[in-house]
Design a protein around this nucleic acid. Structure first.
Lengths: 208, 208
DNA sequence: GTCTATAACGTGATAGAC
DNA sequence: GTCTATCACGTTATAGAC
């Protein structure tokens, strides 16, 4: 018997509803600008229930922050440590998968960067990002590929540049839309084009 | 007659002291996380005095937001519209001047980007950034220089990439310091090295 | 588990003396 | 102009009925 659902959340439990709402609001507005009332309303439940499940705004935020960082760095770790693909292929895959990820969730980068800066938390420190990135297969391949260049680019500089080209446009989205006079749809189309451009540019940089 | 000064602000007027304090705190924490009490304390004055001079937190913020945007885009506008320099020189100058600017005030980019995203204000709209950038001498020179390339890079894509390479490292500073295990001093040194790397990379990209 | 009502607290803003 | 004291309000968190 089909049941009409005004809200697709009706079939999941309350805890999950609150988590999904918290994710949405925190990502969009950041910790300080978020009110627990907004989250409760977004979840379609009462404010008291939020504290019943998660004790406090801070504890709820920590959960969202942790899962967001995990989700964000997991893709990177998987691609970077694939021993079966070439360096060039890795650049293509990481570009494409991150642009797809950010087209779906464009608020993630600035959320993470802003909270890491303004909202002191030990969660950031737990991540062994140094291990994930600086000791990855990707890095060894990159050093191998460039070891005969006359001016070898420092690995960290290269890594930062790749991530800059992929992520910064999403961070600067409001300004880019103003400068280029773009609607959201046109912005997204431009980011899809970037999937092809970035690997090409990276090749050019590596040969320089 | 020399006067001892525990605080270099003692010799400037109260309004200027409040503005300087507001700039510091807003840039560091953003609008929502800033309390007017913090600004008053930083300025070494009483909370009531802040409202006496600026009426409200919002009005004070608008002043800081406006001057910050002006300062940030002014450099760009000047460099981009210099008719006496070549395209390559412009890339060098804009890279160097912006990296110097951000070494002195590293919080500016993420402050601007985060506030433009989360804090609806009409100030952002006042800036004719489209005029400044898309109709600049820089852009005309760039189109001229690349018109014979087989795959001409769209101007906006190019512009975004240049700005990404310069600004994103400052936005991602906390993560970069974690990944690379760097102290602030080492991070700054790396950014100084980037002044030479970025123009070289941009040349490589233009030839691709 | 879920709600209503309210306590407890923090923050922006003002009144009024000096 | 500058301060102390306080108001007014919004927000987090809890008590207690159901």
């Amino acid at each position: 018997m089909a049941v009409k659902k005004a809200d697709r959340n009706l079939d999941i439990n309350t805890e999950a509803k609150i988590l999904e709402a918290a994710r949405t609001i925190f990502h969009k507005k950041g910790y300080a600008a978020t009110r627990t009332r907004d989250i409760a309303e977004e979840a379609g439940i009462n404010l008291a229930l939020l504290n019943y499940y998660f004790r406090s705004k801070e504890k709820l935020f920590d959960i969202i922050m942790l899962e967001t960082m995990e989700g964000f760095f997991q893709s990177l770790s998987v691609v970077f440590n694939d021993t079966s693909t070439s360096l060039e292929k890795k650049v293509e895959v990481v570009t494409e998968s991150y642009i797809d990820l950010l087209l779906a969730q464009p608020d993630i980068p600035i959320f993470l960067l802003n909270e890491l800066r303004t909202h002191p938390s030990e969660i950031g420190e737990k991540f062994k990002m140094k291990q994930i990135i600086m000791h990855s297969v990707f890095f060894k391949q990159w050093q191998e590929a460039t070891k005969n260049n006359k001016n070898q680019i420092p690995p960290l500089q290269f890594m930062i540049s790749l991530m800059s080209l992929i992520m910064f446009p999403f961070v600067a989205c409001p300004i880019i839309k103003m400068v280029g006079d773009l609607k959201q749809e046109q912005f997204n189309k431009m980011m899809v084009e970037r999937k092809k451009l970035i690997p090409k540019w990276i090749k050019a940089i590596m040969k320089s």
